[in-house]
């Protein structure tokens, strides 16, 4: 039993990382119906910024600030130079998707070029000494930090989307971009804001993963990016609580499978989960049935 609870704790901390990345996928999809495949690499950028910031001896809050601000800038720039021109020319969606894949490859190879492909040990900022928790379950400081900071980010995001003017405009754009424009909403600005927020969240996830699993490399964004994308789809792409739940489910499934079945089956079962959920509910857990555009 304690073994099971232990795995739940581990699954939650891994899942919250996936959830943070999944939020960026789902928000961007919600606004412009694009799967931004470069998003996983934005998370890598966050991890590297965190790496250098820690090595420069900056304090923790500043590290997180930089590791969110720099990826946010990346997201903003990528949107501006890669996706916006296509949108302005009414390019088909497949063109944007291919551009996103191209952007992803570009960032990965840029990372290899600048940082070399070799993995680097992330600075040990916190001791990984487990803290004993009730019933023989242990939790480490990085895990506590991850869970706490992720919760703060998710709650802030939810409040932002729900109550602020920009948040409401984001929802309006995701429901009907054209109508929103004709009601005075500047959708370019809303799209920029969406990329900034999504990328900042991915950047935060990058640092947290560095603290949690202290090993980073330029290609580290590929698998987590893919899994976070799957998580977003499981939750219902375009739906923010869906991305949170999907990420948690994904992390949990992965951890439980590793612990109780076999680590070689980990990804197979995690992706199998995706297939099962989509067979039962093709639009994802919180997804609404397909929208008709008129």
């Amino acid at each position: 039993m304690s073994q099971f609870l232990q795995q739940i704790v581990n699954g939650l901390s891994l899942g919250s990382i996936y959830a943070l990345i999944a939020l960026g996928y789902t928000m961007v999809y919600g606004i412009i119906r694009l799967i931004n495949f470069a998003h996983g690499d934005i998370y890598m950028v966050g991890a590297f910024v965190g790496y250098f910031a820690f090595r420069a001896g900056l304090p923790l809050p500043l590290v997180f600030f930089l590791a969110m601000a720099v990826p946010a800038l990346f997201g903003l720039t990528i949107e501006f130079f890669a996706y916006r021109p296509l949108r302005k020319r009414n390019a088909p969606r497949i063109a944007a998707l291919i551009t996103a894949i191209g952007m992803s490859l570009f960032l990965e190879n840029l990372g290899i070029l600048i940082f070399s492909p070799d993995p680097r040990p992330f600075p040990r900022v916190f001791t990984n000494e487990p803290i004993y928790f009730a019933g023989g379950v242990t939790i480490s400081i990085p895990q506590i930090l991850t869970l706490a900071f992720t919760s703060v980010l998710m709650i802030s995001l939810t409040l932002f989307i729900r109550f602020t003017r920009t948040g409401k405009a984001m929802r309006a754009v995701s429901q009907d971009a054209e109508a929103a424009q004709l009601m005075g909403v500047n959708i370019d600005r809303i799209i920029s804001v969406t990329f900034v927020i999504g990328s900042a969240l991915a950047g935060a996830a990058g640092v947290m993963v560095g603290i949690l699993i202290p090993r980073i490399e330029p290609l580290m964004g590929i698998m987590p990016g893919l899994k976070a994308f799957v998580a977003a789809v499981i939750g219902g792409i375009g739906v923010i609580p869906g991305a949170m739940l999907g990420g948690m489910l994904m992390g949990m499934a992965e951890t439980l499978v590793t612990a109780f079945i076999s680590s070689t089956w980990r990804d197979a079962i995690a992706f199998g989960l995706l297939i099962v959920i989509l067979l039962i509910k093709p639009s994802g857990i919180f997804g609404s049935s397909s929208r008709t555009k008129v």
Partner: peptide, 12 residues
């Protein structure tokens, strides 16, 4: 303006 097919922000 208004629209021929109603285009409200349905979920708001």
């Amino acid at each position: 303006r208004t629209f021929q097919n109603i285009r409200l922000f349905n979920e708001l």
